[in-house]
């Protein structure tokens, strides 16, 4: 199953990247909790989550009536390995660290 098209399509939308960022900071949120972190309607959040689930970028767990959403890095890891693993991971990580330091971006 080649999932790459779905992954790139899902990531091509800023709102969906924003939802992934929220899950990166705190994993396992309900739709309602995610909705409070963004300037989007409940319907829009639900629609974006469905696209992310379709691309397997978001996984979920049902606990009773609640549905908890999790960021699922497996497809991004597969893409990274396809194009990056042949190169020097250490140097690429060092470049990312340098960029983060120079630009003053906090990891969280």
């Amino acid at each position: 199953m080649d999932n790459d098209d779905a992954v790139f399509r899902a990531l091509a939308e800023a709102s969906r990247r924003q939802l992934l960022d929220l899950l990166r900071v705190r994993n396992g949120r309900t739709l309602g909790e995610l909705r409070r972190g963004v300037d989007m309607s409940r319907q829009a959040v639900a629609k974006h989550l469905a696209v992310l689930e379709c691309a397997n970028l978001v996984s979920f767990l049902r606990l009773g009536r609640e549905k908890l959403h999790f960021i699922n890095p497996a497809p991004i890891n597969a893409i990274a390995e396809r194009w990056i693993s042949k190169f020097d991971r250490g140097r690429i990580a060092a470049l990312s660290d340098l960029k983060r330091n120079l630009e003053g971006e906090d990891d969280e």
Partner: peptide, 17 residues
């Protein structure tokens, strides 16, 4: 938070096997 006392992740992968 509904799950304040739990730290967890859920990873999903599809494998042709």
């Amino acid at each position: 938070m509904s799950n304040a006392a739990t730290s967890q992740f859920v990873y999903v992968t599809y494998i042709r096997t």
